[in-house]
């Protein structure tokens, strides 16, 4: 083959864009299923104010949920990870819980907190909490005890050991857990908005869908995608920035390898 893999990849992407534009225009796909790309973009930019105000609602919910999910997840994960006994006892319970489609809890939250932001925040927090917590606990638990022994032999006291050994050693895991948890929080907020709500990007998606305004549905979906990718890129940037001084320069989620456990959590259903 004469094309390099990279060229072929770009060719495939270009083909997707062309087909997205061409198939509906040529009438091969009903525009109701798939509006042409340009029409989608036009719909998005035409309604930019409405999108922006709903995006703001979504972002607010995401921000609050991030604090609960990632803050709580990292805290609890760090505790469980650093007390091996408790961790060994509880982690199996949590990983069983991971198998449960948590979305079934959302109706409970709407019944409890109403259809405003509270129910979204409750759901997204829980949704992001477990993977963040599990990831952090696993990461902390694998810190080489040899480091701590070495630090002790050099006369480091407990705060020093935590600040100068545990924290730097844990940063990569914590960041990757944050990345996974954050992605899930975004999905959690948008999905719950899609299910029952009165505002937010997810709400827009559903309300445009019910009136079959497909271009606007697609524009909203694109917006969420961009949000998710931007968040991921941002955390990756931080990961790279910190990788200069951390021991293992390897991000736990390696593109291309399916890292067990962590990445399965990274992919939001």
């Amino acid at each position: 083959m004469s094309l390099t893999p990279k060229q072929t990849r770009w060719l495939i992407l270009a083909l997707v864009v062309v087909l997205w534009e061409g198939l509906p225009r040529a009438g091969l796909i009903a525009p109701l299923f798939l509006p042409p790309l340009t029409q989608t973009l036009a719909a998005g930019f035409g309604d930019i104010h409405s999108y922006a105000s709903h995006l703001l609602v979504t972002l607010g919910e995401v921000a609050v949920s991030l604090v609960f999910a990632c803050g709580g997840g990292i805290l609890v994960g760090a505790i469980l990870g650093s007390i091996p006994k408790v961790g060994r006892l509880l982690l199996p319970l949590f990983s069983s819980l991971y198998a449960v489609p948590l979305v079934i809890l959302y109706p409970v939250f709407t019944a409890w907190f109403g259809i405003g932001s509270e129910s979204k925040i409750a759901f997204a927090s829980i949704y992001g909490f477990f993977p963040t917590m599990l990831g952090t606990a696993a990461g902390i638990a694998t810190i080489d005890p040899q480091y701590l022994v070495a630090a002790r032999s050099m006369g480091a006291n407990l705060p020093q050991r935590i600040l100068r050994v545990v924290v730097p050693a844990a940063i990569p895991t914590v960041l990757s857990s944050f990345r996974i948890g954050g992605a899930l929080v975004i999905v959690g907020v948008v999905v719950s908005e899609m299910l029952i709500s009165s505002a937010g990007i997810g709400y827009l998606i559903t309300s445009y869908r019910t009136v079959l305004d497909t271009p606007r549905v697609f524009a909203a979906i694109l917006l969420v995608l961009i949000l998710a990718i931007a968040f991921d890129g941002l955390v990756q940037l931080i990961e790279r920035r910190t990788s200069a001084w951390r021991q293992s320069g390897r991000s736990p989620v390696i593109p291309g390898k399916a890292p067990r456990g962590s990445a399965s959590a990274a992919a939001a259903p």
Partner: peptide
């Protein structure tokens, strides 16, 4: 080797983006 290099990043990308937001597309289709 070849298709691995071509598809791997694409599949990984699709694997890591949230799927739920595409739900409306399935209803439309």
């Amino acid at each position: 080797r070849y298709w691995g290099e071509v598809l791997r990043p694409l599949v990984f990308f699709l694997f890591s983006i949230p799927k739920s937001i595409f739900l409306p597309m399935f209803i439309l289709a």
